[in-house]
Every structure is written in structure tokens, then in C-alpha cells.
Design a protein around this nucleic acid. Sequence first.
DNA 1: CAAGGAAGCTAAACCGATTTAGCATCCTTC
DNA 2: GAAGGATGCTAAATCGGTTTAGCTTCCTTG
Lengths: 339, 339
Amino acid sequence: MARPTIADIADKAGVSKGAVSFALNGRPGVSDATRARILQIAEQMSWRPHSAARALGASRVDSVGLVIARPARTLGVEPFFAHLLSGLQSGLSAHSISLQLLIVENTEAEIEVYRRWASEHRVDGVILVDLTVRDPRIDALKELELPAVVIGGRGGKGALASVWADDRDAMLSIVEYLAALGHRRIAHVAGTPNFQHTQRRIRAVRDAAPRLGLVDAPSLTTDFSDAEGAATTRKLLSQADRPTAIVYDSDVMAVAGLGVAMEMGVAVPGELSIVAFDDSILTQLMHPALTAMSRDTFDFGRQAAEVLLEVIATPTAVINRRTADPVLTVRESTAPPAH
Amino acid sequence: MARPTIADIADKAGVSKGAVSFALNGRPGVSDATRARILQIAEQMSWRPHSAARALGASRVDSVGLVIARPARTLGVEPFFAHLLSGLQSGLSAHSISLQLLIVENTEAEIEVYRRWASEHRVDGVILVDLTVRDPRIDALKELELPAVVIGGRGGKGALASVWADDRDAMLSIVEYLAALGHRRIAHVAGTPNFQHTQRRIRAVRDAAPRLGLVDAPSLTTDFSDAEGAATTRKLLSQADRPTAIVYDSDVMAVAGLGVAMEMGVAVPGELSIVAFDDSILTQLMHPALTAMSRDTFDFGRQAAEVLLEVIATPTAVINRRTADPVLTVRESTAPPAH
DNA sequence: CAAGGAAGCTAAACCGATTTAGCATCCTTC
DNA sequence: GAAGGATGCTAAATCGGTTTAGCTTCCTTG
């Protein structure tokens, strides 16, 4: 038999379709003996549920979605998403839930996808990344009644479930480390200003500055691209009182910044210390290898998957799970400043 | 009304469900006037097909799958997959087909996924990457009768559909370029030996060597990791008669190789020319920027999507589509050899 | 003008599961 | 020993579409 259905199993076991369904789903309604017999027959016929049939009957599709709204060009280099994906999957596969992935150009397109997914019942829930300050996606998802979990940023008042790490603490520990080395002029090359985590990091730097006796601690925003990372670095290093340390909001920008420093004859770490927020192979391939703040992105994904499944099961649940704190991996790009 | 069904539309239009189905799917059986009226009502009620219901009735799920069997760690850095994904999606979204993505550890797990997808009817077809020499996935897919398209490597006798670029020609043009610069000792740091494209590239180098008067043209295989790329480079550069040019099978290995050269005080491109097979931001971030063979990976994906849809529509079709030839982008890492 | 065929539509079956209502049967329990 | 309740199961409805068989009309055509 090609692809057996529960009707085939019911025939063979001499029971009704309903009984088979109960048995296969571990619900009460059949005796242990019957259940065992049915399970054995199903196993032997190598029966697998037809996902569409199950979705139609149970109105749940065992599939969740992830939409990434970034130009493809910038995506590839960042190990962030690859690790996040693997983590998500490790959390989902335990429950045989599959993942739909979509890369789109902008937030409007992303919301359009949610709208389609919701109306076509293609996913049971979604994972949100890159939360912005007044994020329009939150209201859209509320309206669609689509369960969701936010990665890296507390859902806040609106109360979507979330999985987050403490950006503020992480940034503070970077700045404190640099200050302890003796740096007093520290610059921060930040990401897109409308991202929530960018805001949190900028605020952390600003708040820490007086306490640590920093002479100057400017945060300059960029679009996260290598080009703007390089341009901003060039500007910073051309100043009369140039910084002795720069913190970058991404590994790609840090690498670009290192390139600019080399080009301008500024020795790293002799004359300039560099720290990257977010770690990857990239930072390790460099010479000097970059000191970086590493998050356990895989675990991030795994936890996000778990939380999302809980939210799908209990839509009223409000879960804000905090993950392990990022840790600073010190490599060769940081040292005390030259006098 | 929350989520209208075709029954609602049928009511409103005063026709039967069947007529609505015909109208919405552009099939004959209704008059143009009725069709227009139905479409207008559907539009106005903002009706969207329920994917599970459609899948159940039409036994097609409008979804295709991509499984990548590589450790997540190595995945992130390679823009290859991000671009491929975007390309795939641009080819699929035109037909409202969605994409399932899965990252697994090895080929056995990958085949297991195909088995599950087939039995649960989760996808209409799959895309295969990283074809190996005697690839077990081909037979598995044949047995499952799951439509598939192979990316980067002709399906060959077994005759899965495929989309491929000419690796051999590409490699030949690299070697010819280096030879024209005056290089006679060219080394090739290759990828995993069981990949078909690795084999083709090695063969290309070997075949070209005598014709171009190369003194030595060893191909050394690796596991595609930065670590082995670095180790192999170190070995090559420690030889008495070290090569004056090295061709790497991936951008990541080329970058790692560049690092080793700098470390060992070998000037690039003064004493050593470096060429990367596969281009990305990575090669451009380096100093010196790396000369690289660029493929239009996005287009690769787009074409693969098209071919797969054709194969799904006509399972007997045998399509082997050749994409645009890769082009060599010359940057700063190649120059005539020092005397 | 009767036969034949196409166009336009309806009614009902169907896809493969879940879920609900209901029916025996057996075990309590007073 | 009759009422009451749990247990184990069946039959049928249901999810939202697609598809097939068949029934009217109306138009040809000889």
C-alpha cells in the first residue's frame, strides 16, 4: 500500500477511524490493549499523518514562520541568522514543527506576509526579529491574532512574548573593561537608530560615561553596513582628539573599521582598541583577532522556539524569558591606550 | 465575517461552491460575467484560500523544501546560502509557493527529512545542494518519487533536473589568468573531495597545467573550514619552492589563507597572489581586497525555483539548465610574481 | 424540427484527518 | 436490583476546498 490512511489502519485493526485517531494522538477513549494494537499496526504500515488533513481537522498546521526584513546582501555575512535558525529548529524539531523562512526587503512586505500567512492558515505563529522603537508589526500581529515571540527586546506594554538578553549590561561591561584598561576617549559606532537594542546600547554608553570619567563617548548611528561602518571610523580617526577605543555594534562593521585603521596607519591595538558587539568566525579570521561580545545565538533560537510553542498552546500566556548574559571574549584587538 | 469560505461567496453570489471554485482558479465552467462577479465578491470579502483545505483537495501543498546539511557554524559566514535563498524565493513567490528550510548535521538526517516530508505531504518538491560523487540522496528521492532539482552539478544519468554553472571553465579561466601574469607555481586549496564540483575543479587544474607550462599545480583537499584552509596554506608556504599563487575553493578559506600569509610575512600580492572561488562581502572587506570568481547566486536560486516548478508540473520532464558563466573580479590580491 | 453537442451550472462525493453525539457494556453503590 | 456513572467504542458530522457526474438550456445543423 502506497500511503496508508487511518481508514486503512481502522480496517486492519477492525475498529473505527475515530478509535484510531484517539489511539494515535494519545487521547483517552480506547483501552490500553486496543491502543497498543493500533499503534503497532500503524508502525508496521509506516503510517504518517497527512499534514494537510490534520491541519484541516485540527486547525493547526504544525508550522511556524520567520520573516527577515533585510536586504539579502547584508544577510549572508552575519552568522547571527544561521545560528538563530539552527537553534530555532532544534527547539521545534522536538515537536515535529516545521519552519517557514522568508526574506523580504522591508517591514511593509513583512507585514504583508503575516497577513497572508494568517489568512491562508499557513503558520501557527511567528518569530519577530529586529524590533524597532514603535514597531508597526506588533499591532499588525495583534490584529491578526497571530501568536508571536519577539527575539531580543522585551515585548513591553503591548505584551508579546519575548526572549531577550541584557544589552545594557553587556554594553556596560564593554565600556567598563575599556575604562579599566585606561581608555578615556571611547567612541561607539552604533547600528540603525530605530532598533530598540541600538537605543539601549546608546543609553548604556551615555549613562556610564560620567561614572567612568570618560572625556568623550559619542555614539554614531549607521545602517549596519560595512560601508557606513568604514566611513564613520574614518571620520572618528580624522579628528584631532581621536578616540583610543571604538565599540562597534556588529562584527561586520568592526571588521570594516579595522580595515580603515590599517589603511590610515593607526595601529591596532597599539593606538586604537576595537571591540565588536556580536561574535563570529569573522572576528576570529582577522589579524589582529577582534575582542568581541559573544551571545549564545543558538540558545536564543532554541528558547524562542520553546516560548513560541507555549504561546501557541496558551495564547493568553505572557512570557518574557531572559537568556544567558553575553560574555566578552578578549582577543588581540584591545590593549591599554598609548600615552 | 471573520474568515470567509467559498461557501460564503457562493451564497452571496447565488451560485454553487463548485462554480466559485472554477471561477477562482481560472478554469472553464463558468461564464465570463459570472466569473467576474464571483471574483469581485471574493475580493470584496477579502477571501484567501485555506492552504490546508486546498492541499487536501488538490493534493499539492504549494510549498517546496530546502535542506542544508552542514554544521551551523560554517554556514553563517557564507553569503552563498543567503543569496540562494533570496533567489529561490523570488522565483517561488511569483507563484505563491512557500519555502521550508531545514539545517541538519549530515546527509542521513537530510534523507530522513525527505522521507518525512514525503509521507506527510509537506512539500511538493525539494532543492538539492552540495551534490557528492555517488550521492545517496538521488536514489532516496527517486524512491520517494519526490520531484527535485539539483543545484550546481548535472543530475547525470539518474536524471534529476538540475541548474548548473560551468565550474570547469571558471577554474580554467582563473588558472589561465594567473599563468598569463607569469605564475608557474600555482597551488589549489580545494574543498571536500567528495563534492562533485570539487572534483571538477581539481580536474580542470590538472588538465590545464601542462598546456600552460606550470611547474607544479597541486590540489590539496580540505573540509572547507577556515582552520583547514589556514593549515594547508601554512604547509604550502613552508615549502622550499613555495607557490607564487594560491587558488582557494571558497572565500572563507581564502581569507584564512591571507591571514596566514600576513602572519608568515609573505606579502600579498607581492610574493603571493590569492584568488577566491566564490565572492562575497568578505573578500571585499580584506586588505588587500581579494580577486574572486563571482557567480550570480541569486540568479542561480531563481532559476532553480523555475525548474523545480516545471518538474513538479511535469514529473517526466528532464531539465538541465545552464546558468550564466561565473566571472573573475580582479581586485588587489593578484599581481605578477616576484622574480 | 428532431438530433446532437456545447456551455453553464448544481449537487454530491471526496481528500484524510479530528471531534462530537450517542450507544452498549460493565462496575459501583445504596 | 435499579439507578448512576465510567469505560470503550461506533457512526456521523466537520474542516474548506476540488472534482466529477449529471442536468438544463440554448445553439447548431442537416
